[in-house]
Every structure is written in structure tokens, then in C-alpha cells.
């Protein structure tokens, strides 16, 4: 049997709030901004390989990425906050992904989805980038081949925790490798 909430359980600012009554929180601006950024991450519609199928599944009804405010996949990098590198990246694709990353406005984050994106996976070969962190700075790595949608959601929540607590990578962070080969 579930007890009805007592007066002690009430949250003063929400449950006692009446229209016309003012409610004021004091906070720091960057904390408020981080709260907004945390709950409105817009990923970029960019799929590289089979992990992209799981990424689409994550956004669809069964797993429903919208529960975390991250369902608005943008088709242009200029409106996106999050780059999900979903799949193996070839050296030929690397400049294009880097270009997408640099077109995204700050602040921006990156999830490396799957074994191939994180370290090259089974593709220990001349044509695949051994870890996309040589091309873009990565906040969260997701293991799996491909990762389940739950794993991607877990990565998303971990990223949200990092953003909320201010521990996400410096948005101006540079990747480990350099595109000009220097």
C-alpha cells in the first residue's frame, strides 16, 4: 500500500507554488548554462557504419533517446552539439569528419561509439584510423561491437553528468593527432 504524500514530503517551491507567486533561485550563470546544455544535447546526423544502425535504434521509439532531451538529430553541423562517431572511420573519411567537427559551434562534445571508432577494432589495417581521438577530441568511449542502445544511452547519461558537473572536456580541446601530419 502506498502512503499518500505527507506535508513533510512536499517540495516547497513546486508543491506550494501558486500562480502569481514569485519563485527565485540563486545560482551561478555557468551552472545554469550547464543545466541547459545538459538537457538539450542535439546530436549530429552522421553515421559511419553499422554502429549507426544502433544509433538510429536508440533514437527510435523502443529506447527513446528523447527521454534525455537528446533526440533532435540535426542534419547540419552548425546546429549540432554532439558528434557521435558511429563506426569505423577510414583515413579517407577522416578529413570529412574533422571538417564536420570544426563546423559545429562551441560548446560541443564527442562520443566515440563502438570498438572500431575507439581503437580501430578488428580493422588493424592501413586504411582505418586506429582510434578517432586522433582526429577529434573524445569525451566518452563506448565499448561494444556494436554497442547496445542501452550502452549508448549510458554514454549519453555519463556525458550529461560530465557536462552538468563541469568535467566535460574543454570545448577547445585538440585531438591527439594532427591533420597536417606534423
Amino acid at each position: 500500500m502506498i502512503n499518500a504524500p505527507s506535508m513533510d514530503d512536499r517540495r516547497p517551491y513546486i508543491d506550494n507554488w501558486k500562480p502569481g507567486e514569485g519563485a527565485v533561485w540563486l545560482t551561478k550563470l555557468d551552472q545554469a548554462l550547464r543545466l541547459a546544455q545538459t538537457n538539450s544535447i542535439w546530436p549530429l546526423t552522421a553515421g559511419l557504419a553499422c554502429c549507426a544502425i544502433e544509433m538510429m535504434c536508440t533514437a527510435a521509439a523502443r529506447f527513446d533517446q528523447a527521454r534525455f532531451g537528446a533526440e533532435v538529430y540535426r542534419a547540419t553541423p552548425r546546429q549540432a552539439d554532439l558528434l557521435i562517431v558511429s563506426g569505423r572511420m577510414s583515413w579517407k573519411m577522416a578529413p570529412i569528419v574533422r571538417e564536420l567537427w570544426e563546423q559545429m559551434p562551441h560548446p560541443k562534445w564527442c562520443i566515440s561509439m563502438g570498438a572500431c571508432a575507439s581503437c580501430g577494432g578488428v580493422f588493424q589495417t592501413y586504411s582505418i584510423v586506429p582510434g578517432v581521438d586522433q582526429i577529434v577530441p573524445v569525451d566518452v568511449y563506448v565499448p561494444g561491437c556494436p554497442p547496445r542502445p542501452e550502452a549508448l544511452l549510458d554514454a549519453l547519461i555519463k556525458l550529461q553528468n560530465k557536462i552538468r558537473s563541469g568535467q566535460a572536456k574543454n570545448p577547445f580541446a585538440e585531438p591527439a593527432g594532427r591533420m597536417d601530419g606534423a
Binding site: 589495417t125 592501413y126 591533420m179 597536417d180 601530419g181
Partner: peptide, 10 residues
């Protein structure tokens, strides 16, 4: 086998 890893990608 796993490439030279030193290309100028532009």
C-alpha cells in the same frame, strides 16, 4: 601490415 600512419591528410 597496419599502415604507415604518417599521411598528410590536408
Amino acid at each position: 601490415f597496419d599502415g604507415k600512419r604518417e599521411w598528410n591528410l590536408g
